[in-house]
Each structure stands twice: as structure tokens, then as C-alpha cells.
């Protein structure tokens, strides 16, 4: 990255503030739709941080996969399950939140002291920079070949699993006689019918 030191520090400050503030918004805001959009902002700021770390390929993958796929998926899920409901009051919810906050602050203090006090073995070699995508490709097809293929199988399994979990298991009772209604209804077979047909 051929940026001056001052530019790097200023952009790091802006991006870090954006990441943390939008992450706090994701957790603390009441409306879950705002949370989903702020999550997208957090992901994009995170991609900016990756650019500061000389990783252009992973930054592009972050924007494509996280913002383009996961965030859109979350928004669709919110639209599908967005029922305005008043949550029943749980006894001791305030105590629980305060205790969780204390635990998280303690965890942060612990991690912070560890980060500051550890002497990191910082390498002085010049970063891969623009050739990072070449290096990543070489890793994928030599020493990380087995995990690379396993990830493709895992994605296939997740795809099939998500479809099996999310689809409806009943045929609507009120199928009308007219054809266009049926086309819009997308009826699905019951499990028993599928299994009995497999038995034959």
C-alpha cells in the first residue's frame, strides 16, 4: 500500500470508529431492520481495514460475500419473520444485561492487556501487497488443497441443508381448480408421499 503514514492513520481511525459504532448499533438498536443495515456498514468498514492491511483480494471477497450475500440473506430473513411482537418481560433481564456487560468489559480488559503486554514477533519483510492474490492461489492449490475442496463440499451440504430445513412440509388444503392460482401457490409434496414413492 503506497499511502503516506498520516493518511493511513487517519483512515484507520475513521474505519475503526465506523466498525465499532455500527457494531454497537447492531447490538443495541431496537429495530432489527436498522441493525441489519448497520451490519452491512460494519462489513464495508471492515473491508476498508483489510485494504489497510495490504489484502485487496480478501477485501473484495468480504464485500462480495458478506455484504452481497450474507447481509442480503439476513434482510430477507427479517422480512420473512418480521412480526411486530412485544416480548414478554423476563424476570431479572436488567441484572442479566448488566452482568453480561461486565463480563464483556472484563473480557476486553483481559484481551487488551494481553495484546499490549505481549512482545509480538513482527516481521520486517515487505508485504506481498499486489501479488497477494497470486500467493493465495498458490496456497489454495498446493498446501491447502484438501481444505479448499472440503469447503466446496461443505457449501454444497449447507445449500441442501438450508433448503431441507426451510421448505414447507405441507400442501395447502384450499387448492383451487383454476390453473394460475396453483402456479402461484407453489405446492409441495408431503413427506410420506415422497417416501412411499421411493419405496416402490
Amino acid at each position: 500500500m503506497n499511502l503516506a503514514e498520516g493518511v493511513q492513520i487517519v483512515s484507520f481511525g475513521i474505519l475503526a470508529a465506523a466498525v465499532l459504532i455500527s457494531a454497537l448499533g447492531v447490538v443495541l438498536l431496537k429495530n432489527v431492520v436498522y441493525s441489519a443495515f448497520l451490519l452491512g456498514g460494519s462489513f464495508i468498514s471492515m473491508a476498508g481495514l483489510y485494504f489497510l492491511l495490504n489484502a485487496d483480494f480478501v477485501a473484495a471477497a468480504q464485500v462480495l460475500v458478506y455484504v452481497g450475500a450474507i447481509n442480503v440473506l439476513i434482510l430477507f430473513a427479517i422480512m420473512l419473520v418480521n412480526k411486530q411482537e412485544e416480548y414478554a418481560v423476563v424476570k431479572g433481564a436488567g441484572v442479566r444485561q448488566v452482568a453480561t456487560g461486565l463480563v464483556c468489559l472484563g473480557l476486553f480488559a483481559l484481551l487488551g492487556t494481553m495484546v499490549v503486554s505481549t512482545p509480538w514477533a513482527i516481521s520486517s519483510a515487505t508485504p506481498a501487497g499486489d501479488s497477494s492474490i497470486v500467493t493465495i492461489g498458490i496456497h489454495f492449490f498446493t498446501d491447502f488443497l484438501l481444505p479448499f475442496e472440503l469447503v466446496s463440499v461443505l457449501l454444497l451440504i449447507a445449500l441442501v441443508g438450508a433448503i431441507v430445513l426451510a421448505r414447507r412440509e405441507f400442501v395447502p388444503e384450499n387448492l383451487s381448480a383454476s390453473g394460475e392460482d396453483e402456479a402461484l401457490m407453489l405446492p409441495e409434496r408431503q413427506r410420506e408421499m415422497v417416501s412411499s414413492r421411493d419405496d416402490n
Partner: peptide, 22 residues
Amino acid sequence: PKEIKGQVFTTFIIAIAAAEAA
């Protein structure tokens, strides 16, 4: 900074996060 194996791991984690979200 030479081998950048961390970036390879990050790519794997992004793929697994996509599967987890779905």
C-alpha cells in the same frame, strides 16, 4: 507478510460464515 497464510484462513472463514448464515 510473505506467505500470508492468514489471508487464506480468512477466505475459508468467509466461506464457512456464508454456510453458517444460510
